[in-house]
Design a protein around this nucleic acid. Structure first.
Lengths: 215, 215
DNA sequence: GTCTATACGAGGATAGAC
DNA sequence: GTCTATCCTCGTATAGAC
């Protein structure tokens, strides 16, 4: 955005200088590209083209494609990581904790719908080797703990906490995989519109809470 | 396999001639590669290396990488497609239909755990454009129909059938994404072992059935 | 049918002018 | 800081011998 303004103020000189703006633009475009293609089949040329800046700027700021990828990973996970760390759930009932956890998770991914896709590619293609102290792992164990507590207390069914944690994550995140594919709701609403995202959050939470509760 | 036998019978001649066997070997290796990387970042060289046959055989039998990809798509979806067509669910109660549907789906993907990964890549990377009369679409609408019936009858909660169908698919399929990544169960069991796959099917079905039921 | 060798294009990365 | 031009590796695809 800052870049845009400078560009207008300075129309006859194509070489705008704004390090932060340039990096931001590159990161945004890279996030899109990596979300769609993952590290290996993402194209630096495609990223450069989307930004309008020269391809060499990528190497200037991020060293190489891998460096850019790591920057994108960090940036796109930081929100989720921070949010999950701020959640303190131990003083809540298992059911309340689970709902709070899911709300926070769905909130994060609704704000950044590309995140699940990035996670997916990273998991499948690279076996998560670019997650050092993986944010998604730490979030997963948080969920397992909630489920364990609920089963022990008897408010949740006798379910396997480990398996169920994976399945619950799937319920929340799979939607975003389909989003690029399905595009159109029968009624013609986009899957990533604000209304649909909110509905997804509601539906997912309802399905999961009903699914784990002890009848 | 047939290839292996011939190879042993004929050790001094490297040039074994068995069209079917060669194609089968290539298809198997390609399925693995495409599951991990999708069309774009799959490498024909990697596929050839895994098979032991010359890279040019891929082009001889499948014309090009895209041709091979389509062959893999068709082959790996045929089981699911056939299974889903053979299901006739209209005479069953919504709950029984849903259980039967889920059992069949989980059975298919447990037999071929690479299928969800292939679907995923195809959806994200290519927006499903290689699905002509998409098998996964037809299966999805089947699920929507079941849910609609259940809601109408009142045996299911008031849920959105479209949204819930996606979430249910996520519950079943996301597991296979994690499988490559998580590798190890806390107790040291592999996620794709027969026992774990069966447990996953049970857990997923239980979660979903409890999740949709009207209390 | 199968192999080896190679042509050719795409894409990652760098050099150097401005 | 930004751009253009270029290098060079890697990967798809083909040619041609066996």
């Amino acid at each position: 955005m800052a870049r845009q303004i400078k560009a207008e103020k300075n129309l006859n000189s194509r070489q705008i200088r704004d390090a932060e703006a340039t990096q931001a633009v590159i990161l945004a475009a890279a996030e899109e590209e990596f979300a769609k293609h993952g590290l290996t089949s993402a194209r630096t040329e495609a990223i450069a083209k989307k930004t309008g800046v020269a391809k060499s700027m990528i190497y200037y700021y991020f060293k190489d494609k891998e460096g850019l990828y790591q920057a994108v990973l960090e940036r796109s996970h930081s929100d989720l990581l921070q949010t999950s760390q701020q959640l303190d759930l131990d003083h809540l009932s298992p059911e309340a904790a689970l709902e709070k956890f899911l709300t926070a998770l769905l909130d994060c991914v609704s704000r950044n719908p590309k995140l699940p896709l990035i996670m997916f590619h990273e998991a499948v293609q690279n076996q998560g080797k670019y997650y050092k102290r993986s944010s998604s792992l730490s979030i997963d164990t948080k969920l397992v703990k909630i489920l364990e507590r609920g089963v022990a207390t008897g408010v949740f069914r006798k379910l396997d906490p480990f398996q169920s944690a994976i399945n619950i994550m799937g319920t929340c995140l799979f939607y975003f995989v389909g989003a690029g594919n399905i595009q159109q709701h029968p009624q013609g609403k986009r899957l990533l519109s604000k209304a649909m995202l909110e509905q997804h959050a509601q539906e997912a939470i309802a399905l999961i809470l009903a699914g784990v509760r002890n009848p």
